[in-house]
Design a protein around this nucleic acid. Sequence first.
DNA 1: TTTACATACTGTGCGTGACACAGTATGATG
DNA 2: CATCATACTGTGTCACGCACAGTATGTAAA
Lengths: 126, 126
Amino acid sequence: MTQYDVVIQYRKGRYIIEYENFAKEMNRGYLQLLVMVLLQESMYGYQIVRELEKRNYIIEENTLYPLLRRLNNKKILQSNWEIVEGKPRKYYQISEDGKKVLEKLIDIWLRQNQLLKNLLGGSKDV
Amino acid sequence: MTQYDVVIQYRKGRYIIEYENFAKEMNRGYLQLLVMVLLQESMYGYQIVRELEKRNYIIEENTLYPLLRRLNNKKILQSNWEIVEGKPRKYYQISEDGKKVLEKLIDIWLRQNQLLKNLLGGSKDV
DNA sequence: TTTACATACTGTGCGTGACACAGTATGATG
DNA sequence: CATCATACTGTGTCACGCACAGTATGTAAA
């Protein structure tokens, strides 16, 4: 915690650089979109975490599992259990309703991208 | 509300298509990024709403004003009042701390973009 | 052999921000 | 003189990211 740090607050027993919070917010919406895109092929939770890890994107298990459950409850995803090597795995895939929502989200994402690209005006290669 | 609609729930006196909720989530993080990018030049709230409207991006006043206040409280933004044509206007600009956060957010955004682009595999022109 | 780590889930609760709702005040237009 | 555009303020609700805590199996190291 130096003069160079950004905005600091004490929470849950440690100092939080405020941009950790902003980073969190950046995930909202995006993670849902990401998961829906991935689950066009059937996958289980742990597999998703590892797959994204390989692609240098860290998603917390604490984030992903509740997310999968929520999307499942909303019928955005479908799921089925399989026993593999004595351990149960819950496989998820996007549902027909989910595909419709996914389309909308990709639309939004494209529009957001376009706008930001314009505002940054070529200073970033997006 | 037809068989073609996606996921429906009744709230606040009307039916909500579930993807409105997903759309909402898509704004989290992104709006903060957007505002920080815009406020590299000094602007006031109402002006931001109209400016984005021109660019076909609707941001609710109910969303923007609280957002500006929050970012101001966190010293991400600075503000000053001016009286124009007898009416007070609160002008905001990004602060030095804010610029550091903005850089991080753009990084995150670029990484998210890259990953999603890869996953969508050329099927979308991003 | 027991300790520890990887695998693969479950449940509950907190904090934050998008947006709803409500309100204030001025100037211009009809 | 009513209504609309301008330009803010304050407070409350709800959903989601993530923290925290727990369960259970298989495997590798000490």
